[in-house]
Simulated assay, not measured.
Amino acid sequence: MMTGLWLLTNTTVILLTARLASDAGLPATQVSVAMGIASFAQAIAMAVAGHLSTFTGRRNLLVTWGISSAVLGPFLWWAAVNSHSLGRAALLAAALQVATVAAYGPIACYLSERFPTEVRSTGYGMGYSLSLIIPALYPFYLPLLEGVFGSHPAIMGLVAVGGILVTVGALMGPKLSSADIEADIDSVAMGATR
């Protein structure tokens, strides 16, 4: 699940920033403004997602967000990098980040709730950090993928894969309903590890 989120982060934040300049032709100041607006929208959506997951259940929310990322993400990414105005780029970058990486909203809680107190920091750290390795190596594999599929389709495919990984990872995890969330965190974690 976290590998999917990191893959989404790299494609919709890092790569999008570069491609708004190179592909959409926006000057650097407009790219900064567009990405600043997108980050603001993402921050609000993350807070809403975190709060909403308390009512819907963490897994339900993450599965829904993963599907949203896999289905909407590639199209929003393509539209953003093919926009040629600041307003359109900002709106599409914001929609893209809300549909994809705003899923980080409940992640801190979800990972913490997965592990009992005695291994919580280790489990959280491993789950959050080790999952970064494969997505972080994109400078090595992205040029190969672009050579085979093309510049835009390669990244759009990575966005879809990120969404699929979030969905599958969330489906493999515990449900953590609103009743579970209200329980003692160690009781929840012990139930989640079974």
Rank of each mutant, 00 (worst) to 15 (best):
M1G: 05
M2L: 13
T3H: 04
G4I: 07
W6S: 04
L7Q: 02
L7V: 06
L7A: 08
L8E: 00
L8M: 02
T9V: 07
T9F: 10
V13T: 10
I14Y: 12
L15P: 12
L15N: 12
L16H: 13
L16N: 05
T17G: 04
A18K: 01
A18C: 06
R19Q: 09
R19L: 03
R19V: 01
S22A: 14
G25R: 04
G25M: 07
L26M: 08
P27Q: 05
A28L: 07
Q30G: 07
G36T: 10
A38Q: 00
S39T: 04
F40Y: 11
F40T: 12
F40N: 11
A43C: 05
I44T: 15
S53Y: 00
S53Q: 07
T54Q: 08
T54W: 08
G57F: 00
R58H: 15
N60Y: 12
V63K: 04
V63I: 14
W65K: 13
G66D: 00
I67R: 07
S68Y: 13
S68F: 11
S69A: 11
A70Q: 06
V71M: 14
P74A: 02
F75T: 01
L76T: 08
W78S: 04
A80T: 01
V81F: 08
N82S: 04
S83I: 09
S85F: 08
R88V: 00
R88T: 08
R88M: 08
A94R: 03
A94C: 12
A95N: 13
A95F: 03
L96N: 06
L96E: 11
L96T: 03
V98S: 15
T100K: 12
V101F: 10
V101E: 04
G105L: 03
P106A: 06
Y110S: 02
L111I: 06
S112L: 08
P116W: 04
V119A: 11
R120V: 10
T122Y: 15
G123T: 08
Y124S: 01
Y124P: 00
M126Y: 14
I134H: 10
A136K: 04
A136C: 10
L137M: 15
P139F: 11
Y141L: 11
Y141H: 11
L142A: 10
P143I: 10
P143W: 12
L144N: 08
L145Q: 14
E146N: 14
V148C: 10
S151K: 12
P153H: 02
P153C: 03
I155W: 03
M156S: 11
G157Y: 01
V161Q: 12
G162D: 02
G162F: 00
A170F: 01
A170Y: 03
L171E: 15
M172A: 15
P174K: 05
S178K: 15
A179T: 14
A179G: 10
D180T: 09
D180Q: 13
I181M: 14
I181Y: 07
I185M: 02
D186T: 06
D186V: 01
S187E: 13
A189W: 03
T193M: 13
R194I: 09
